[in-house]
Design a protein around this nucleic acid. Structure first.
Lengths: 246, 246
DNA sequence: CAATAACTCCGTACACTGTTCGATTAAGGT
DNA sequence: ACCTTAATCGAACAGTGTACGGAGTTATTG
């Protein structure tokens, strides 16, 4: 699984459309798109941890080694899957409203999409940026056209928001997973953990500030709140930039 | 690797100190702490992807199966490692300065710690919260004593900041990894990718907003900026809460 | 048209992984 | 002394990603 120069160049070639087809030899009976589709299908139905080359191959009715004539790596295949999913998200700058509404819409949709496809969380964040990733960034930058922000500042805002969203998405998806978990008797994870802590271990007054909590907000509420605070800060910066310009 | 009720309870027992020692049978020659230490050592020297039960066992001069008398799971061992590392971070409320300076200090130290131990990134975020995790949260909540925020609001702020930090830490660590990568001829990943995109594929004006970038800020600058914006928003909320109270 | 070089497909194999089983051995309680 | 319980660990199971080499197919070349 070592990353070679060759595999990097091949992966880039695959991402940026197609890698011109060779001449001699039998026709290929599959396409890279079909690999991506099959891989996505496996991930969707069984999760990332079950996403193996052999399973993808089986789904295509083909030997496992065959996949390596289309793709240099499992990593490359995953990069293709990620870029493909990125291409399915709506472009931020096409949404209605002012810049803040556009950002909120994209952030919320991002969260929703990751909750619907939790396996994506473990797969995103790789070094490769494909054409869909570029297109998305280009669109996100355009959201700040006319706000008075420079291109570099707009980039900082986009990345700032994206980082916040990524972190909170991880929290929400982890919470979702925990919520779905139940033990053989049907108890929830939270129940097991709470009841364990209640009976054993924790003496009162060991964590006074935690005991003061009444109904702490869930991860989705925290996400909304965090986004609002961040955008408050950005908004202040934007009005500054605007008044400085006028 | 299925999660059973038993493994959950055993893991909780291990986290919350010790799991009372049994009577009959030969003495155990190891301790859970030594397992944690060995696991940390492997991760530190060879990375998470090389962190296997067999390697941990070898480092302790013991058969792989032996580990399973100390720990129910690999997941449990990792949870212990995470809580152990959490215990090594300085407690936020003991830092000098006002609430904002304390938050900034903890966020920066968090980032620095993850950059120093990149393997931690892939391991954190599990459902288990051990005593060190609780102590850390308790300390973080205390940072907002005297700000006029309710306990629940303080929790929202802590989680908001933590989510932001997590997301940006992932970005920075990924960037660090990419920076360290070089191909056999010594070219950097960025070089290979740029030069690939320059020669092939991208036609001009396809991504106009991206082309307008001059010197986009790196992930660490973005992290600082994002933190500042978020805390601007929080600060506004806090002054509101304060004036409402007085 | 035949030979050749290039290519796809894939069975097999290698070096791993986490975890279970069963045998062996060591210690405590009675 | 005996019986029960527990620790240790070699072997095995069902997986994993991927390299290799052979068989069969095709386009280009002589």
């Amino acid at each position: 699984m070592g990353v070679t120069r060759k595999s990097v160049e091949t992966t880039l070639g695959l991402l940026w459309s197609g890698l011109g087809q060779p001449r001699r030899g039998p026709r290929q009976q599959l396409t890279v798109e079909r690999l991506v589709e099959a891989a996505t299908g496996v991930a969707e139905e069984e999760g990332v941890e079950a996403l193996s080359m052999r399973k993808v191959a089986a789904r295509l009715g083909v030997g496992a080694a065959t996949l390596y004539t289309y793709v240099p790596d499992k990593a490359a295949l995953l990069a293709l899957v990620v870029d493909d999913m990125t291409g399915q998200a709506p472009l931020p700058h096409t949404r209605p409203g002012n810049w803040r509404e556009k950002v909120e819409a994209w952030a919320r949709e991002d969260l929703a999409s990751f909750r619907e496809h939790p396996w994506l969380v473990e797969i995103t964040g790789g070094p490769f940026v494909g054409p869909n990733g570029f297109a998305w960034m280009d669109s996100a930058l355009r959201v700040f056209d006319g706000t008075g922000l420079s291109a570099d500042e707009a980039f900082a805002v986009v990345e700032a928001v994206d980082g916040l969203v990524q972190g909170h998405v991880a929290k929400v998806v982890a919470a979702d997973r925990v919520d779905r978990w139940t033990d053989p008797e049907g108890r929830s994870f939270a129940n097991v953990q709470e009841s364990y802590l209640a009976t054993r271990a924790i003496e009162p007054d060991r964590f006074p500030a935690i005991e003061r909590l009444e109904s702490p907000p869930g991860p989705v509420q925290v996400f909304e709140q965090a986004l609002a605070w961040l955008l408050d800060g950005v908004e202040r910066r934007i009005t500054e930039a605007r008044t400085a310009r006028d």
